[in-house]
Simulated assay, not measured.
Amino acid sequence: MDILFVIILGALWGSFANVCIFRLPNEGNVVSGRSFCPKCKQKIVWYDNIPIISYIILKGKCRNCDYRIAFQYLVVEILSLISFTLIYYLFGISLTTLFFWILFLSFLIIFFIDLKHYIIPNVITFPLMALGFLKSFDPNLSYLFPNYVNSLIGGALGYGIIFSIIYFYKQIRKKEGMGLGDAKLFAVIGFWFGWISIPFIVFLSSLIALVSVIPSLINKSKQMSSEIPFGPYIIIATVIFIFFKESFTNFLL
């Protein structure tokens, strides 16, 4: 029964994540006003807004005007459902589970906003920094979380490294490279997982980004100077770090 509740909860919060992904870049209010069709502007009735199920029944279209609803909506809700369920399976009913639910839901929102709009909203990163540091004062949480000293150093290191890269790149090339949103996201990761996470995630996210753009460079649809959203690569690398932290830290230390 508990697992069924978690599955439903994950899908519902995935639906909320979709609202944030749609409204935050446009500075919309995410907690007021019913969802509506982007084309015909008709408000969506509750039975057409059931996570995952409604999308499948309506075949990804608006009931009123047959406007094609982005497949991303279904993907976000499924990913949220899976992450909520997996986290609950690993950590049970605990504060660690609650913290990871908040983090992964925030990661989902950041991932898809940055992927489309090339921005990482401060309204998400700043609270995550604060929460990441505050939770470090509780010694009874998962071994994945650092103590408050490690957390504070991690947050400063995460922001400092990326800010330094941005600054020196701008001095040398006379143009912007990465954005400060990426620096803030690395600060979030440092506060949540400590300084030891930063070198691994900087390296791995850069490697994943490079591998992903090589085909575009080969077919010349992108150039080395082309803008790419780096947030999704940071998030992918962070998830890998979380799953393999013990192996990584044993190797490093």
Results as ranks from 00 to 15, higher is better:
Ile201Asp: 00
Tyr167Trp: 15
Gln72Ile: 14
Trp101Gly: 00
Gly10Ser: 10
Asn250Trp: 10
Tyr143Met: 12
Gly60Ser: 07
Ile166Val: 15
Ile162Gln: 01
Ser94Trp: 10
Val149Thr: 13
Arg34Asp: 11
Trp195Cys: 04
Asn150Met: 08
Ile93Gln: 11
Ala187Asn: 04
Tyr89Leu: 14
Val75Glu: 04
Ala209Asn: 06
Leu252Ser: 08
Val213Gly: 07
Gly28Pro: 07
Tyr88Trp: 12
Thr249Trp: 09
Arg173Val: 05
Phe248Ser: 08
Ile240Gln: 08
Lys222Asp: 02
Val149Trp: 09
Leu79Phe: 12
Arg23Cys: 11
Asn122Thr: 11
Ser35Phe: 09
Thr125Glu: 04
Gly154Ser: 12
Tyr47Asn: 10
Gly181Lys: 00
Val239Phe: 09
Ile235Pro: 00
Gly231Ile: 03
Ile82Asn: 02
Ala17His: 02
Phe126Val: 14
Ala130Ile: 15
Leu9Met: 13
Lys245Arg: 15
Lys170Ala: 12
Ile165Thr: 08
Ala237Glu: 08
Phe168Tyr: 15
Met178Tyr: 13
Ile110Met: 03
Leu134Glu: 13
Trp46Val: 12
Leu204Asp: 03
Met178Pro: 09
Tyr88Asn: 03
Gln223Tyr: 06
Val45Tyr: 13
Lys39Asp: 12
Ile228Ser: 04
Val149Arg: 10
Cys20Trp: 03
Leu81Pro: 00
Leu98Ile: 15
Ile214Cys: 06
Pro25Gln: 07
Ile153His: 08
Leu131Pro: 03
Ala156Ile: 15
Leu9Lys: 02
Ile44Met: 07
Ile82Ser: 06
Ile44Gln: 04
Leu152Ser: 12
Val6His: 01
Gly158Gln: 02
Asn250Cys: 06
Ser142Phe: 13
Ser221Pro: 03
Ala156Met: 15
Pro121Lys: 05
Ser35His: 09
Phe104Glu: 02
Gln42Met: 12
Phe251Pro: 02
Pro199Asp: 11
Ile93Arg: 11
Gly181Arg: 00
Val211Gly: 04
Phe191Ile: 04
Ile198Tyr: 01
Tyr143Asp: 13
Ile198His: 01
Ile119Arg: 07
Ser80Met: 07
Leu152Glu: 04
Cys37Thr: 07
Phe168Trp: 15
Ile208Tyr: 07
Tyr118Thr: 09
Pro232Thr: 05
His117Arg: 06
Met1Thr: 13
His117Val: 05
Leu204Met: 12
Gly132Leu: 02
Arg173Gln: 11
Thr125Phe: 01
Ile235Val: 10
Ser164Tyr: 11
Asn219Lys: 09
Lys59His: 14
Glu27Met: 10
Ile82Glu: 02
Leu95Gln: 14
Asn18Trp: 07
Trp101Ser: 02
Ser151Leu: 02
Lys184Ser: 08
Ile120Gln: 00
Ile93Asp: 13
Asn18Lys: 06
Phe133Lys: 10
Ile109Val: 15
Gln171Arg: 15
Leu207Phe: 14
Gly132Lys: 03
Phe248Thr: 12
Val211Thr: 08
Pro232Gln: 03
Trp195Asp: 03
Phe107Lys: 00
Gln223Phe: 05
Phe200Val: 09
Leu128Ser: 02
Ala187Glu: 08
Pro232Val: 03
Ser94Gln: 13
Leu141Phe: 13
Ile110Ser: 00
Ser225Gly: 08
Asn150Phe: 09
Thr125Arg: 01
Ser142Trp: 10
Phe248Trp: 15
Gly132Ile: 03
Pro25Glu: 06
